[in-house]
């Protein structure tokens, strides 16, 4: 079993034009910086990106938007990105906005082998238009389908060569859910270790879900809102 690849370029080399991808992260926290940079360099086009946010103008998925690589975004919140808003309002970019919990749980459902979920989020709103509903115990729920993604790209703190992953603090967010959801899952990690170095009690994503892993470099970890106390 050899899941280790040399770098981001090698990890993403077969991501094709028109691929559907999941990208982990919340805002700029816990995003796969190395793979995004490699995708920008490779110039892959017509991508569908399932990601909670769309980065900012000059970082994260925003870098791919600048290069017009993204055909469709499936996200819950896309503020903080002027180029995104411009492409959306001009019709260049297709956008599906869905509730954050629905987004997370649809990723989870994929990894759990469940075709769909029922959620109350969005009942009676635009989100519910054209969707099947069902009443349980007097409350209405929407039927939402598991995602199908060709690739999932996640960022973890530590990983081993079997693909077992541990995330740090709130950089966990969507990463373990998307790690479960890709037909091919690529993990970039800050520390890559040999099997046995990570405590099995502390693994967040079991390696069975991960197909390729590499040690990322030069993490910028840009902060969107630096707030400090005295």
């Amino acid at each position: 079993m050899n899941k280790v690849v040399k770098n981001a370029e090698e990890a993403i080399k077969d991501i094709f034009d028109g691929a559907v991808m999941m990208l982990g992260g919340f805002g700029l926290c816990g995003i796969p910086e190395n793979c995004i940079a490699a995708l920008v360099k490779k110039g892959t086009k017509n991508l569908t990106c399932i990601s909670n946010n769309a980065g900012v103008d000059d970082f994260g998925i925003g870098l791919m938007l600048q290069q017009h690589q993204v055909k469709k975004m499936i996200s819950s919140y896309v503020g903080e990105n002027a180029e995104f808003e411009r492409q959306l309002l001009s019709g260049e970019l297709e956008v599906e906005l869905i509730p954050q919990g629905t987004l997370a749980t649809r990723c989870m459902a994929t990894g759990y082998g469940m075709p769909a979920i029922f959620t109350p989020a969005g009942v009676g709103t635009e989100v519910a238009e054209g969707k099947e509903t069902r009443v349980f115990n007097g409350k209405t729920y929407l039927l939402e389908y598991a995602f199908e993604a060709d690739f999932a790209i996640v960022k973890a703190w530590k990983g081993d060569t079997h693909g077992n992953l541990i995330y740090k603090a709130t950089a966990r967010n969507f990463n373990p859910l998307m790690a479960m959801g890709g037909k091919i899952t690529i993990a970039e990690v800050e520390e890559l270790v040999e099997p046995g170095k990570l405590d099995p009690n502390e693994i967040h994503t079991p390696g069975i879900y991960v197909h390729r892993i590499f040690k990322g470099t030069n993490y910028e970890k840009r902060i969107e809102q630096k707030t400090v106390s005295k």
Binding site: Y77, V78, G79, L88, V95, P99, Q100, T102, V127
Partner: peptide
């Protein structure tokens, strides 16, 4: 304004 619902609907 089209920023999205984030977690508000949930």
């Amino acid at each position: 304004m089209v920023k999205g619902m984030g977690g508000a609907m949930d």
